[in-house]
Design a protein around this nucleic acid. Structure first.
Length: 388
RNA sequence: GACUCAGUAGCUCAGCUGGUAGAGCACAUCCCUUUUAAGGAUGGGGUCCAGGGUUCGAGCCCCUGCUGGGUCA
């Protein structure tokens, strides 16, 4: 009998995952991770992990599996939270949950599971895995969850073959309502529990407030870049031209207002600028942390909000399908998304020695450095990388 | 100094020939969402610069003053 350790979060998805595995005949062990216990920064209820643990216990008892707990909060802080601070400080927009999966759930957690004698680990992610043998070698394929509304493959875009080889995703074949139904039928305490939101383990936080734990508020100018700024920029086929962020200078626009620290903002952001009287909403189109300037554009269609492409440094390019890695100077069409739940966009990848250039068929809005671009073929996730 | 235009929600402004005010933006809350955002819905707010007058009734008319912009000397 194969032994599976399931990451029990205290939510419905992992509850049902555990139940399904048990039903399939696995020997199932629950493992609860405590990764964060600082309730002072959360916006919603406090001490969420205690509630989560309680629910995990109830569910495990119900389906009759043991539950272990492990405290990974030191490592979580080191590998996820500190990374967040560091990225924001650089004026970038990190994705802590992608890191959390790569560094915690599918790294340290797997280690803990192996200590418990696990053959596999499972989570409640809406995502599918398929293992094929190609050239006499097993190749693990990461596929989108069946529920198009809940597909969470994006969050797993940084996983390696070794990590995926250990993983099982029992709810990936189900739709969310089906998961709820199973939970309900089985009388699991989590059946109607609200989906978690916000940063995994940390919860919903007000980012500027959260960041102020480590990053100082520092007043600076908000500068508006007029639409005609772009009139002189001629269209080009050059990969570098089309994939680099606009580099504005103070003289390119007019000071509109003040902000409380450029590193608290992200590209595409509308709320929190506190600029009224503009008729149209203002959006952040660039931030310069060295000069401490936030550049904004007026209106939904401001050219500065859109970019044709993006670039990923070679060392930050990750192929889930190592076997299908694009060779240097090769190019290929994929479907790409730059944020969770974004509809996949047609794009072409160009592999160069310095990294990967992605050119979209249609210009994309709010591409933020620090976020992950993930490329797919049909429903399969092929690779990902940090947007430069 | 003269002339002239303006002074209405936090901001930018609308308000027809007088009947106690509106829109966009901002903001707040909620929804959506295991990242940041975006998006959707709802909402809070106004001695209509001040004082006086005309009128049954004034943001709108008249007078005076104050403040700001412009033009001319």
């Amino acid at each position: 009998m194969k032994r599976v350790v399931v990451g029990m979060s205290g939510g419905v998805d992992s509850s049902v995952a555990a139940f399904l595995l048990k039903q399939e005949g696995y020997e199932v062990i629950g493992l609860f991770m405590k990764n964060w216990d600082d309730a002072s920064v959360t916006l919603t209820s406090n001490c969420t992990w205690e509630d989560d643990l309680l629910f995990a216990e109830m569910v495990c008892k119900k389906i009759d599996i043991p539950l272990h707990t492990v405290d990974l909060s030191d490592q979580y802080r080191e590998r996820v939270v500190n990374y967040m601070f560091a990225e924001y400080q650089r004026g970038r927009t990190p994705n802590p949950d992608v890191l959390c999966n790569r560094e915690i759930k599918f790294d340290l957690f797997i280690d803990e599971a192996l200590k418990l004698g696990a053959d596999y680990v499972a989570t409640g992610h809406y995502c599918r895995k398929e293992t094929n043998v190609i050239n006499n070698k097993p190749v693990h394929r990461l596929l989108a969850g069946k529920d198009p509304n809940k597909d969470q493959s994006y969050f797993l875009c940084q996983l390696s073959q070794a990590q995926i080889s250990r993983a099982l995703f029992p709810v990936g074949e189900l739709l969310k309502p089906e998961v709820r139904k199973i939970a309900d039928e089985q009388g699991l305490a989590t059946a109607t529990r609200k989906d978690s939101q916000g940063i995994c383990f940390v919860g919903k936080v007000d980012l500027p407030t959260f960041l102020q734990q480590k990053l100082r508020a520092k007043e600076g100018d908000i500068i508006e870049i007029p639409e005609n700024y772009y009139e002189n920029i001629k269209a080009s086929d050059d990969l570098k031209e089309n994939t680099k962020a606009y580099q504005y200078k103070r003289e390119d626009g007019k000071v509109l207002a003040r902000h409380r620290g450029a590193h608290f903002y992200t590209i595409g952001q509308r709320k929190g600028l506190n600029i009224g009287g503009t008729g149209k909403p203002m959006y952040v189109i660039a931030i310069d942390v060295d000069e401490n300037i936030v550049y904004v554009g007026r209106g939904d269609n401001h050219p500065g909000l859109y970019r044709k492409g993006l670039f990923i440094n070679a060392i930050e390019v990750h192929w889930v399908r190592e076997d299908l890695r694009l060779g240097i100077n090769k190019s290929k069409e994929y479907l790409v998304r730059v944020r969770y739940r974004q509809p996949l966009q047609k794009a072409k990848l160009f592999a160069k020695s310095e990294g990967v250039y992605i050119i979209f068929e249609k210009p994309q809005r709010g591409i933020a450095p620090g976020q992950f671009a993930a490329w797919y073929e049909n429903t399969e996730l092929f690779g990902s990388g940090v947007i430069n």
